[in-house]
Amino acid sequence: MKVLVTGSAGFIGSHVAHVLLDRGDDVIGLDNLNDYYDVGLKQARLDRLLARPGYTHVAGDLADRATVEQLFASHRPERVVNLAAQAGVRYAAQNPHVYAASNLTGFLHVLEGCRHHGVQHLVFASTSSVYGGNTALPFSEHQPTEHPLTFYAATKKANEAMAHSYAHLYGLPCTGLRFFTVYGPWGRPDMAFFSFTRAIIEGRPIPVFNHGHHTRDFTYVDDIVAGVVGALDRPAAAAAGWRGDAPDPATSSAPWRIYNIGNARPVQLLRYIELLEKAIGRKAVMELMPMQPGDVPDTAADVTDLMADTGYSPSTPVEVGVPRFVQWYRDYYRV
Rank of each mutant, 00 (worst) to 15 (best):
M1G: 10
V3R: 07
V3P: 00
V5S: 02
T6L: 10
G7V: 06
G7D: 07
F11C: 15
G13F: 04
H18K: 09
L20C: 02
D22T: 03
G24A: 05
G24L: 05
I28E: 07
L30P: 05
L33A: 05
L33W: 02
L33V: 06
V39E: 12
G40N: 13
Q43V: 03
A44S: 13
R45V: 03
L46C: 00
D47Q: 11
R48T: 15
A51Q: 11
P53I: 14
H57M: 02
D61P: 04
R65L: 03
A66E: 12
V68P: 08
L71A: 02
H75D: 03
V80G: 10
N82C: 09
L83M: 14
G88I: 06
P96V: 05
S102K: 04
S102N: 11
L104G: 02
L104T: 14
H109Y: 09
V110F: 04
L111W: 07
E112Q: 08
H117L: 00
H121W: 02
V123A: 07
T127N: 04
S129T: 00
V130F: 02
V130T: 04
V130S: 04
Y131P: 15
T135N: 09
A136E: 14
Q143V: 05
T145P: 00
H147C: 04
P148S: 02
L149T: 01
A153G: 03
K156C: 03
K157C: 08
S165I: 08
Y166V: 04
Y170Q: 01
G176K: 04
L177E: 00
R178K: 10
F179R: 09
F180E: 11
T181N: 15
P189G: 15
D190M: 06
S195L: 06
A199Y: 03
E202T: 07
R204S: 11
I206E: 01
F209K: 08
R216T: 04
R216I: 02
D217Y: 11
T219N: 09
D222H: 08
V229Y: 06
G230R: 12
A238H: 14
A238Q: 15
R243S: 15
D245F: 06
D248G: 12
P249W: 02
S253A: 13
S253Y: 11
A254F: 11
I258R: 13
N263G: 13
A264G: 06
Q268E: 12
Q268N: 12
L270I: 06
I273V: 12
L276N: 01
E277G: 01
K278C: 03
K278T: 10
A284M: 02
V285E: 02
M286I: 11
E287D: 12
M289R: 15
G294Y: 13
D295S: 09
D295E: 14
D302W: 06
V303K: 07
D305R: 10
D305M: 01
D309K: 09
P314V: 11
G321Q: 01
V322W: 00
V326N: 08
Y329I: 00
R330Y: 08
D331V: 12
Y332G: 05
